[in-house]
Design a binder for these strands. Sequence first.
DNA 1: TCAATACCTCAATAATCATTGAAATGTAGA
DNA 2: TCTACATTTCAATGATTATTGAGGTATTGA
Lengths: 119, 119
Amino acid sequence: MMGERQAVAAFAALGQEHRMRIVRQLVTAGPDGMAAGMLAEAVGVSGTNLSFHVKELTHAGLVTSRREGRSIIYSAAYPDLSELIQFLMRDCCQGRPEVCAPAVAALSACCKETSRWTS
Amino acid sequence: MMGERQAVAAFAALGQEHRMRIVRQLVTAGPDGMAAGMLAEAVGVSGTNLSFHVKELTHAGLVTSRREGRSIIYSAAYPDLSELIQFLMRDCCQGRPEVCAPAVAALSACCKETSRWTS
DNA sequence: TCAATACCTCAATAATCATTGAAATGTAGA
DNA sequence: TCTACATTTCAATGATTATTGAGGTATTGA
């Protein structure tokens, strides 16, 4: 389960325009991920700069990588992203369920087709 | 609806140990909020420092304040927190519902007593 | 093995952020 | 009005963070 230290690191990582875009790009790209070059172009940063930000995201546990030929492929760390969300939710509910109720409602609608996941 | 700019600002605000604690403390404290002095002690920072961080959180839209006698009372901005969560959820679902399904499951369990909120 | 490609690491610089203490503001009660 | 109290503002300092360019490493195909 995700601790405060780790959650703070993850939020700090997401609190930067380019890193937020990188994560969103990778989440959209899906489990197959994207090569560094493509990702840099999509996000609009130099290769060097992408490398820096991706390393930050990797340390925060939000992104993983693998080599494939002469490319390095980055992917969103789906399980860790999910845990971060759960961390935020868990805290938001501390005695105040009315805070996250609208969020869970929106989420339920968004994920309706997978509502068979029930635990 | 929350935009990227605003979400980045909110995440950046949460990506700092003391600010994260301030927000959690206020969320736990409920809508009645907490006086600055109490909050500073609870979080473990000086009054001056609390003032700085609370201002950051206010700019990020995560905290609101009101004067009450000679105290200033801070409260969590529940609606904005909820929107931030929804922003994260919305993005996590872009074509990949399996990412947030575990989170929504955990959330549903946590907020079971308010499941009458259905939109 | 050579040259080209795709990325990364390192060091330096500029920019932003966190913390502190001193001084100012606004509020309440005598 | 005077004093105590709660909190903020300001200026200065040190600590992180972001970005860049130069040079390095791994992989591929000729």
